[in-house]
Structures are given as C-alpha cells and as structure tokens.
C-alpha cells in the first residue's frame, strides 16, 4: 500500500499534470474521431437499419439514446466516487480535479436519460412521469450531481469545496446499487434489466448491434469530454497560479 502514494506507482505516475497533458494531447484526437465514427454508424443503424419493435413500433428507437445515457450517468458517477476516494486518501491532484471536471458531463447524461425516458414513457405507459423506484432513484442521482456542483462551488477556498464534494460523492454512492437493483427489488413500471444479466441478453441481435454501437459512441464521447475538461481545469489552475505570481 505504501507504494501507491509514491511517484513510482501506477496511481502516482499519473498524478503528474505535465504527464497527463502530454497524454491528453495524444488521446483527444483519437477519442473525438472514434466518437464521430461510432455516432454516425450507431445513429444510422438505429434509425434506418434496425427493425421497429413488434409492440412499440418506431418508438423503440428512443432506447438507443436512453439506455446508453443511463449507463453513462451511472458510470460517470462511479468514476467520480472512485476519484473522490483516491483524492481524499492520497491527495491525488488529478483525481480531485477529475470529479470536479466531469460532474457537468454526468449531470447532462442523467438529464438526457430522464428526458428521453419521459418522451418514451408518454406513448408507452401513457404518462410522462411515474414515481416508481427506478425513476425516483435516477432523479435523486440528478439531484446528487447538481448538489455536488453547487457544493464544490460554494467555498471561497477551492480545496475545501473539492474535499466537501468528495465526501458527498462517497455518501451518495449508496444510491448507485439502489438504481441498479431498483427494478429487481421493487415492482416497478420500468422494465427489468435485459442486457446485463446472468443468463445473457434478452434483446434481439438486430437491436443489440445499434445499442452497443451507441453505447460505444457515448463512451468515447465521455472520454473525449472528460479529458478535454480535465485539461481545461489544469490550464485554469495554471493560469490562476501565474496571475497570482504576476500580481505579487
């Protein structure tokens, strides 16, 4: 465990902002290119090359946005919570900045998930919104993102905001398993899991392909945005430090 905090370890190696910036400049163009590629392919298959559902008709295509956005909403939060943990324990500068940088991205994914779910719910369930366990817990996730951003921003000392936010992220992590298993624990109007389950996906192959393409697109979009925003945070910090030096 002792090696983790030192510069020779895996975690320590990426704590160096300079090394990250060099890496970021290499990763960003690739991530953007893959994002565009996957979105073009995914959207084409989703809209033109996949069959309408035998019950839902063409509205099933909302799934290709809704489900990847929901996955990313959870995924982003989990990475933020892990980063918050690493940042609190090892004072890892990049991990601390990471959570702050990707919070708006996660909030946006959650928002997209809620909006597309609502648009899908109206024709399918006959209601824009129902207060079942899955929808409520995702709404709480959205509140967590918003609360986190407000909290990080509310202190005059940036470091204190980051520390307080990290605490909130760790406490709020309890919501993640609740979201994941809400459809199993409670009798919800929202359907249970049909992709990631023990006995294999129950979705037909013709629909699984566009779904996975879109999931890939959302992942690469996330990587690109995360790296981009983290790089911006580092630049902002450098700029502040430089202007403070200039003022002194």
């Amino acid at each position: 465990m002792t090696a983790l905090g030192t510069s020779g370890s895996i975690i320590g190696r990426f704590a160096n902002p300079g090394r990250f910036l060099a890496l970021a400049n290499g990763v960003l163009p690739v991530a953007w290119a893959l994002t565009v590629l996957f979105f073009v392919a995914g959207l084409y298959v989703a809209f033109f090359d996949s069959p309408p559902d035998y019950q839902q008709g063409d509205t099933v295509r909302i799934m290709y946005i809704h489900v990847p956005a929901a996955w990313m909403a959870l995924f982003t939060y989990v990475t933020m919570a892990v980063a918050a943990f690493v940042g609190l324990i090892w004072k890892h500068v990049l991990a601390e900045l990471y959570a702050k940088a990707v919070a708006p991205v996660g909030a946006a994914f959650t928002f997209i998930c809620l909006v597309t779910g609502s648009l899908w719910g109206k024709p399918m369930w006959g209601a824009w919104w129902v207060w079942d366990a899955r929808l409520t817990s995702v709404l709480v996730l959205f509140f967590l993102y918003v609360g986190y951003m407000a909290l990080v921003d509310a202190f005059d000392d940036e470091q204190r905001g980051i520390n307080a936010g990290a605490c909130l992220l760790l406490v709020g992590a309890i919501n993640i398993p609740i979201i994941k298993f809400s459809v199993d624990w409670w009798n919800t109007l929202h359907q249970p899991a049909s992709i990631i389950r023990m006995d294999g996906a129950t979705v037909d192959k013709s629909m699984l392909l566009p779904l996975l393409l879109m999931a890939g697109a959302f992942h690469f979009l996330f990587i690109a945005l995360a790296v981009f925003r983290l790089r911006t945070e580092i630049f902002a910090r450098k700029y502040r430090a430089a202007s403070l030096r200039g003022a002194a």
């Binding site: 609360g147 509310a154 202190f155 204190r160 905001g161 605490c167 909130l168």
Partner: peptide, 22 residues
C-alpha cells in the same frame, strides 16, 4: 457539518439534504 463554512449554506443544505429525506 459538510456545508460548514460555505457561502449560502442554508440553500445548499436544502439541495443536499432534502433528496436524502425522500
């Protein structure tokens, strides 16, 4: 305790605590 020392802590508390009370 978490929002201690922040600006507009009352408002912030409402945003953070109310979802936990659901």
């Amino acid at each position: 305790a978490l929002t201690l020392g922040s600006r507009r802590s009352g408002l912030l508390l409402a945003v953070l605590v109310l979802p936990l009370l659901i």
